[in-house]
Nucleic acid binder design. Sequence first.
RNA 1: GCGCCCGUAGCUCAGCUGGCAGAGCAGCGGACUCUUAAUCCGUUUGUCGAAGGUUCGAAUCCUUCCGGGCGCACCA
Length: 499
Amino acid sequence: MEQQQPLDDLFAQRLAKLQALRDRGIDPYAPERFDRTHLATEILAQFDALSESGETVAVCGRIVSLRVMGKASFLHLEDVSGRVQVYLKLDAIGAEQFALLEYIDIGDFLGVTGTVFRTRTGEITVQAARFEILAKALRPLPIGKQKGDEQWYGLQDVEQRYRQRYLDLVVNPWSRATLLKRIQVTREIRRFLEDRGFLEVETPVLQPLAGGAAARPFITFHNALDTHLHLRISLELYLKRLVVGNLEKVFEMSKVFRNEGISPRHNPEYTLLEVYQAYTDLDGIMELTEQLVYHVVCAVAGGPTFTYAGHQIDVTPPWPRVPMMARLEECAGVTRADFATLESAREAGRRLGLPMEEEHSIGGIIDKIFEKACEPGLIQPTFVVDHPLELSPLAKKKPGDPWLTRRFEAFLGAQEVANAFSELNDPLDQRERFEAQQAMARAGDQEAHPYDEDFLRALEHGMPPTGGLGIGVDRLAALITDVPSLRDVILFPQLRPEK
RNA sequence: GCGCCCGUAGCUCAGCUGGCAGAGCAGCGGACUCUUAAUCCGUUUGUCGAAGGUUCGAAUCCUUCCGGGCGCACCA
């Protein structure tokens, strides 16, 4: 802000233009509103009627191209809908306005009033009767030039695209389209759930204990309370408290925070959807999940199929259900007997060429083997069901087989997009699970679930049978939009701070 | 955290077996009243990511650091 470094030439030139405008009594930052009659694409769509009636239209937007000639000029204005060409002719706008063109640049905002016509070369164009500078840009817009589908120059630098996303949005239509689709994904999720009577709720981001998932939290400090607080890593435990409170059908779609590495598949803060429905079970949640994803894909992709990484993926329900252990035997040749003891489990992992030195839990080994051996093949939507108890401290045990739980993970494009279970509502069992997690924590597992006495108290007041669902919204959006990195569907992905 | 790759003008990029830092676009000046990658004439622009080293001489070679991308690890 207070930097006294000499401004570079481009900036100085534009400051001079700003001053020149002000010297003529025009302050580009003075206008507060411009009442447009049509968006750019509306001009194009309604051309016949507009040109026939000869009515006056008013359009506004950012200048994205500018071709100045001696006594006539063309430019393109871009607004939220698209682009429309504007024709400025000396005879039509007068010498005084025409002279102002000298102080206008690509990137400035302009409001134009005029009539609609078609140029000799066929482009629908607004011929200006007058124009108004609505705001000036002091820095250059790194916009490419465009002819048909081809694009020259533009903004390629990945870091700049993420740090200065506003430039990416102005300059790269494909990036804007992707991000708008991501916004559409969250909107359609809300619409789907609200239409089915789910209440959208907000629960604490700052929590005394961060539970509901296996992950390392961010820890912050509250001065007045003189206490450390954790940024939430999931939404689960507070939403279940609301089910205890008879809200029955709730969801939250909001940020959670995990203190882990950053990669194309991981952002430290990401958008998680969690849904809880009382009086339904895992199978009810499977149907809900299928219908939800089907609805979102149809709305965003225009039909039940989309392409991801070269695969055509069809999300039309129903999706196949496969038990986790059966799948493991199929693609890794391991059975439950291999997981009888920690040592035999490690041995099974080593047979498959996986490093096992760090592994200290059977569940962790099962998870790792599944991830390496089975996930790559799960391209079409698939429910993997019946996860081992050790991996699932918040899920009900499977009746008749307490080694397993009533849980599923939904895979799509070889990625886990949903995780759900019949929620454990037995407070005594839940207490035992927390104790087991505590033992794992003592054994060195930094991501073991914390012992949450307050949550147990809520369960002890009684929670109805409930099905719960979690969906990583960013990953779902990345799949539907066929982008390789989460950063492409997050407006401002996390980067190391500059300097 | 580890490994590999990248960083040159406002933008997109050449230059990299060491020898005067370049092109197109943007900008600036001029011509041009239907252009559209406007065209034509002229022209400016650099801490070559930073610091140090080798060398008569470094954008180029070496070291360290900063920032980014990808892979691995952790995870969703």
